[in-house]
């Protein structure tokens, strides 16, 4: 399944859960829709009877008894039930993480996601951006932080959303029951191109996850190429890190393995040489307001070389 297929909106992701932190919420949603439909039907029937019903019906409806029954007794019973249901579920879904669960630190930045994979001691093993790789069928702990303004991480098929607030750390747990690609999005308005701040969550089979982890942990091994020269000459390393090379900038996403990413520009474009070249040439046209300047100075040849270099960083 390609990454962009995962971004489709049908069936509605909130109603198409893929893990135990989203599934019960879908059940709640259906219960609530049923409740809403029933209550709405009652109100509509009562209103219709009040307006058009025979005199006898209207006489029965037109007193304080209806207000007590419909406006007080019935809501109190229904809401008490819903409240207990909701409180139970809130408790279950917000249980604290168990020791030994995989931990990933996700930092919201204007308008992309810094993703740090933590080792057993809580230190950062390596960094990636705009996608979160997780093993399947095991709870994963996301430590949510923000570098600048408030963001909110929302992966509807895996869990509800949780805000990323400067100066605080929030804990979001999620679990994918099946390998696959899950779309996610920033849900709190964070200025400028907030609309174009997406990411993908990739759940691997356990063995593939281990392999991916091993590969990502390694520095890049680029061969000397014209693209590498353009990268260095254009000053890309001032903002981006490519582990294993001189590029060690911290402002932008780590590009050590950019070639292996599914999307570009924080979940908005498929990742291949063409889009890479277009992004470098004029990312402002693709995602207006983002922090990366356009590079109109690069010739077509340079761009192609640079894109080839980046794509090879797998």
């Amino acid at each position: 399944m390609s990454a962009l297929d995962a971004l489709r909106g049908w069936p509605p992701p909130v109603l198409d859960p893929a893990g135990p932190f989203a599934g019960p919420v879908t059940t709640v949603a259906w219960v609530l829709f049923a409740m809403g439909a029933v209550v709405l039907a009652i109100v509509l029937v009562a209103t219709a009877a009040a307006l058009f019903g025979p005199r006898r019906w209207r006489a029965r409806l037109g007193g304080e008894r209806l207000v007590w029954l419909g406006g007080f007794a019935f809501p109190v019973v229904v809401l008490t039930g819903l409240l207990i249901y909701g409180l139970t579920l809130t408790r279950d879904l917000s249980a604290p993480p168990a020791p030994g669960e995989v931990r990933v630190r996700v930092t919201g930045e204007m308008w992309w996601w810094r993703v740090g994979y933590l080792d057993a001691r809580g230190g950062e093993a390596f960094q990636d951006a705009n996608q979160i790789h997780i093993p399947p069928r095991a709870p994963v702990v996301l430590e949510l932080e923000a570098a600048d303004v408030i963001h909110s991480l929302w992966i509807p098929r895996l869990a509800g959303k949780l805000d990323m607030i400067p100066g605080r750390r929030n804990i979001l747990r999620l679990q994918a029951d099946r390998p696959g690609v899950y779309a996610a999005q920033c849900a709190e308005f964070c200025g400028g191109p907030h609309a174009l701040m997406g990411l993908v969550v990739v759940a691997h089979e356990p063995r593939a996850y281990a392999a991916w982890q091993a590969r990502q942990g390694r520095p890049a091994t680029p061969l000397p190429s014209r693209g590498a020269e353009v990268f260095a000459a254009a000053g890309c390393g001032a903002c981006h890190t490519v582990r294993g090379t001189a590029a060690n900038g911290l402002a932008g996403p780590d590009l050590t393995h950019i070639g292996s990413r599914r999307t570009l520009g924080a979940g908005i474009l498929p990742n291949h040489q063409g889009t890479l070249a277009a992004w470098v040439a004029d990312s402002q046209a693709l995602k207006p307001g983002n922090r990366m300047p356009a590079y109109p100075v690069l010739s077509g040849r340079d761009l192609r070389a640079l894109a080839a270099y980046l794509e090879a960083l797998k």
């Binding site: 109190v76 809401l79 008490t80 409240l83 207990i84 409180l87 139970t88 809130t90 408790r91």
Partner: peptide, 13 residues
Amino acid sequence: AVAICWQALGALF
């Protein structure tokens, strides 16, 4: 009284 009972439920949970 109703609202108070509900809020107490919230605290219990």
